[in-house]
Simulated assay, not measured.
Amino acid sequence: MLLYIKYMVSLRCKMAVKEELKKLGIHYVNVDLGTIEILEDITDLQREQLRESLMKSGLELLDDNRKIIIEKIKSVIIEMIHYSDELPKVNYSDYISEKLGYDYTYLANTFSEVKGITIQQFIIMNKIERIKELLLYNELNLTEISYLLHYSSVSHLSNQFKKITGLTPSYYKKLKKKRLKNLEDI
């Protein structure tokens, strides 16, 4: 049996869910971003207890099919951008459609209706967050980041970054250094 969880986007979330399942005595096969695969059907009482315990952690047990599809889309995108070593070589639309087993037009329409933004906008927002993360770690230069995240050029990455954040990537990086310097002065 599969259960779907909203806002489950990190390894810390997965650990929190596993802990709640253990407390409730619910045996699981797998806990992944946005999903829990359990061995047996759970009772209505167990479902309600799980719902309440997850809410305390800022997570939500989903029952609505449209919301479940949205969370699946978000999980695929987050996994693809934040946790994969390399982005897929195919179009994102083909990748998402193949991963979820739905026609992309259906997925895109459902996502837009429920979230009020397109899947492409959600992908861009996540790519910008990933760029910020990579800039802060200071392990890759902009050319390497651009290549890693499949931008056509450093210029394209920089323009998109500035459009979303209001800052250039280099200025964003300088702000980080300035914040660190200010912390050292305390």
Score class of each variant (00 low, 15 high):
residue 66 R to W: 11
residue 159 N to I: 00
residue 135 L to H: 00
residue 127 K to S: 00
residue 38 I to W: 03
residue 183 L to I: 08
residue 111 F to E: 12
residue 71 E to T: 12
residue 18 K to F: 03
residue 137 Y to K: 01
residue 133 E to M: 06
residue 47 R to I: 06
residue 156 H to Y: 01
residue 104 Y to I: 03
residue 175 L to P: 08
residue 68 I to L: 08
residue 158 S to K: 03
residue 178 K to Q: 10
residue 16 A to Y: 09
residue 73 I to W: 02
residue 33 L to D: 03
residue 166 G to V: 01
residue 186 I to P: 04
residue 127 K to H: 03
residue 176 K to G: 10
residue 22 K to N: 14
residue 144 E to T: 05
residue 9 V to P: 00
residue 175 L to F: 07
residue 170 S to W: 05
residue 122 F to I: 04
residue 26 I to Q: 09
residue 62 L to M: 11
residue 178 K to Y: 09
residue 132 K to Q: 04
residue 42 I to C: 12
residue 10 S to L: 04
residue 126 N to G: 07
residue 75 S to I: 01
residue 115 K to R: 12
residue 51 R to A: 13
residue 129 E to N: 13
residue 144 E to Q: 15
residue 128 I to H: 01
residue 80 M to P: 10
residue 90 V to S: 15
residue 150 H to F: 01
residue 131 I to G: 01
residue 32 D to F: 06
residue 44 D to W: 04
residue 181 K to W: 02
residue 87 L to M: 10
residue 146 S to A: 15
residue 171 Y to C: 06
residue 105 T to K: 15
residue 85 D to I: 01
residue 65 N to A: 14
residue 50 L to G: 11
residue 46 Q to W: 05
residue 67 K to P: 02
residue 169 P to H: 04
residue 151 Y to S: 07
residue 50 L to A: 12
residue 173 K to F: 08
residue 138 N to F: 02
residue 126 N to H: 11
residue 10 S to G: 02
residue 140 L to K: 09
residue 142 L to Y: 02
residue 139 E to L: 00
residue 158 S to C: 12
residue 96 I to R: 11
residue 88 P to S: 09
residue 103 D to T: 00
residue 74 K to W: 08
residue 43 T to H: 09
residue 184 E to A: 13
residue 74 K to P: 05
residue 157 L to R: 04
residue 74 K to C: 10
residue 36 I to L: 05
residue 106 Y to C: 04
residue 72 K to P: 01
residue 141 N to H: 09
residue 44 D to G: 12
residue 54 L to A: 08
residue 13 C to H: 10
residue 15 M to C: 01
residue 177 K to G: 01
residue 88 P to Y: 05
residue 89 K to S: 15
residue 158 S to R: 06
residue 3 L to K: 13
residue 76 V to H: 02
residue 73 I to M: 09
residue 73 I to E: 02
residue 122 F to Y: 15
residue 173 K to A: 08
residue 182 N to Q: 12
residue 137 Y to T: 02
residue 116 G to S: 10
residue 71 E to Q: 13
residue 33 L to F: 12
residue 174 K to I: 06
residue 105 T to Y: 14
residue 171 Y to K: 03
residue 137 Y to V: 00
residue 12 R to C: 00
residue 138 N to V: 04
residue 58 G to L: 07
residue 101 G to L: 04
residue 146 S to I: 04
residue 15 M to A: 13
residue 48 E to S: 05
residue 125 M to C: 07
residue 9 V to Y: 13
residue 87 L to Y: 06
residue 182 N to H: 08
residue 84 S to E: 15
residue 93 S to M: 07
residue 82 H to I: 08
residue 175 L to V: 03
residue 148 L to N: 09
residue 116 G to R: 06
residue 186 I to K: 09
residue 147 Y to M: 14
residue 97 S to Y: 00
residue 8 M to K: 06
residue 144 E to C: 03
residue 174 K to R: 09
residue 140 L to N: 05
residue 124 I to L: 14
residue 49 Q to V: 05
residue 109 N to F: 07
residue 81 I to H: 10
residue 107 L to R: 10
residue 169 P to A: 05
residue 49 Q to K: 15
residue 134 L to V: 05
residue 49 Q to A: 13
residue 66 R to L: 15
residue 38 I to H: 14
residue 32 D to I: 09
residue 131 I to D: 03
residue 52 E to I: 06
residue 29 V to E: 15
residue 133 E to Y: 05
residue 79 E to F: 11
residue 57 S to E: 14
residue 155 S to E: 14
residue 38 I to D: 07
residue 141 N to L: 08
residue 120 Q to N: 14
residue 153 S to P: 08
residue 16 A to M: 10
residue 177 K to N: 06
